[in-house]
Design a binder for these strands. Structure first.
Lengths: 215, 215
DNA sequence: CTGAAAACCGTACCGCAGGTACAGCATTGG
DNA sequence: CCAATGCTGTACCTGCGGTACGGTTTTCAG
């Protein structure tokens, strides 16, 4: 009775590859079942419709990304006690991780679906929204921790800086896809990192520029 | 013989609204012709297939956005001779323009299509790429003009800063769409503006933070 | 070993979408 | 007036998402 879960995972694997490569709408069920070696009935045994497939994909994706973020920023926490350094180190590790992916980042499932959200029902759309909110909260929490330690004369808006990081990443994914250039994403992650650094360490500007040129 | 062009434009108008609201794949030809009051044959008289419709949409979109950018940054050029101020003013005007749009920004045709590029042929995909490259070049040229006047000890990479502006805008559009929050886009445009300011005027950090909080 | 649930297979069918083919009709500028 | 231009109408094809439903195999608990 665990064979069912194996098949379900195989369907999700094949579907995920298809969606990232071609988009959700262009990834047909016929195509998935052909590659999985099952029949249409088999597919609909596991997923009532394509919306449930989308939910399954998003659920897995969220879990994996959460795990990756935990690993990366957990490692950053090992390397420094300072909340600012943790964020900076984490973003660098994140960028390096993306740069190391063979063939570049495969694409963001959430961004893909967000731009095809008309294909889905409210439940799936709600999932997309909540995942994006989760990312924002994640970065926001880190920035708020920095603000506690780095009391500035004027408080900065943690929310918009957190959103900026997420926007830069999403935008980097899109632009990388549009230009066919896998270096754009890690580059823009580092740009976001440098923004954070500038916000909290204005004196470090020139050192930062040296870094940017060297990279 | 100009009636043909009128119909063609009407088709493009209806299609554009549909694509921005629901995505390209979910905007059916049947739906377009119903709203335009023509028949399927009439549609295919103007557009050989959906790819040609996409090309028509992108072509119009590129032209309009070019015009908008010219207007906004032309106005900025009237307001200041300084290349840095021109970019900063232009980005502020741009953000204000987006914020003023009723119901928020309708969405970026290029980003939409970039994430559904599997639906299109190489010609359309090439158009998407070249439009994105055009935006990058636009901002890059402005940044290079700034670098001439603001000679820094260490040169900064104009390309990646230009791409960052475009990424922040695209990311802002996506996040605004995902969260259903039209304020994200103008907010992130101003974040990009502040980044530029920080890169060239590190001393102005605290003034900038005051701005960010006031906004 | 057995029996019932789980995990499928096979077949047939439906509606919608994109697209093709082609004949014909109406308007309009030269 | 006549030839493009700008359509209409009809018929048809393919592929996709999805439904329905009966039959078969696999798996594990008792």
């Amino acid at each position: 009775m665990r064979k069912g879960n194996e098949t379900r995972e195989r369907i999700l694997d094949i579907a995920e590859a298809g969606v990232l490569a071609k988009g959700f709408g262009a990834t047909s069920i016929d195509e998935i079942i052909a590659e999985a070696g099952i029949t249409k009935s088999g597919f609909f045994y596991h997923f009532r419709d394509k919306n449930e497939l989308a939910r399954g994909l998003l659920s897995r994706y969220r879990g994996r990304l959460e795990q990756l973020l935990d690993e990366i920023f957990g490692r950053a926490a090992e390397l420094s006690d300072d909340p600012l350094q943790r964020l900076l180190i984490g973003l660098t590790l994140f960028a390096e991780h993306m740069a190391a992916m063979p063939g570049g980042h495969p694409g963001c499932l959430v961004a893909t679906m967000s731009y095809q959200d008309q294909l889905f029902n409210r439940e799936v759309r709600g999932m997309v929204t909540s995942i994006v909110e989760g990312w924002n909260s994640f970065f926001r929490a880190m920035i708020e921790a920095i603000i506690v330690v780095y009391p500035l004369r004027e408080p900065i808006d943690a929310g918009r800086l957190a959103r900026h990081i997420a926007c830069a990443i999403d935008g980097g994914i899109i632009m990388g896809k549009s230009l066919g250039d896998p270096t754009v994403l890690p580059e823009q992650m580092l740009m976001a990192r440098n923004y954070v650094k500038l916000m909290f360490q204005p004196a470090a500007l020139h050192a930062l520029q040296r870094e940017a040129v060297a990279a």
